[in-house]
């Protein structure tokens, strides 16, 4: 736990640089959707850029005993302790290896700040809402209620996640577990 600390400053710098780039692009709305796309288990997902607070490199996590299985631990986000969730576990996928591409995407959902781990972050993408369709029942390996829609690009499909549902569910499940 203590070994990864020396280069944390660098990590943070890199992270905030990424966040700045993202922030510049985000701004106008309308028919155009601005998304952050990322990869989990070779599938491409996207979330609304407005929900994303920042994107950080992987850092040391502190495990919390008796927490739900998909909660990897907590991190120190500039003085605030936030939980970090492994999206692979959340999606019920097999555990993957963390490498230099792994990222923690920090989002704010229902006033909670939550981080989730993805395999790699691709890009900030603008697409027209016209090409987004409701999710077909069997489009991919994850539960359909997490999916806000599917963006059909020329060469590929992008799964738009409904992070409110993705993590609201998280909270209620935990409550149920606590009860």
């Amino acid at each position: 736990m203590a070994n990864g600390t020396s280069n944390q400053t660098q990590q943070n710098n890199a992270a905030s640089a990424t966040a700045v780039v993202a922030g510049k692009i985000g701004g106008n709305a309308g028919q155009e959707l601005q998304l952050v796309t990322f990869e989990v288990s070779s599938e491409e997902f996207a979330v609304d850029i407005l929900a994303v607070q920042e994107i950080n490199r992987m850092m040391d996590l502190t495990r919390v005993p008796q927490s739900p299985a998909d909660v990897e631990g907590v991190i120190n986000l500039r003085g605030k302790i936030i939980p970090v969730i492994d999206l692979r576990k959340r999606f019920g996928m097999e555990a993957g290896k963390r490498d230099e591409h792994s990222r923690i995407i920090v989002v704010e959902v229902h006033g909670r700040v939550i981080g989730f781990i993805v395999d790699r972050v691709h890009e900030v993408l603008r697409i027209s809402s016209d090409i987004v369709e409701p999710a077909p029942a069997m489009v991919c390996s994850i539960r359909s209620e997490f999916i806000a829609g599917v963006g059909k690009l020329q060469d590929r499909l992008i799964i738009l996640l409904d992070i409110a549902k993705l993590f609201a569910d998280q909270a209620s499940e935990q409550l149920a577990k606590a009860a």
């Binding site: 600390t5 502190t62 919390v64 008796q66 927490s67 739900p68 907590v74 120190n76 302790i81 909670r112």
Partner: peptide, 23 residues
Amino acid sequence: PLDEGERTARAVSGATVRDDGGV
């Protein structure tokens, strides 16, 4: 304070950030 979702953890009352930035 730990995030609300983490309170279910027993025998843990909170968290702190160490000198080295870790939790």
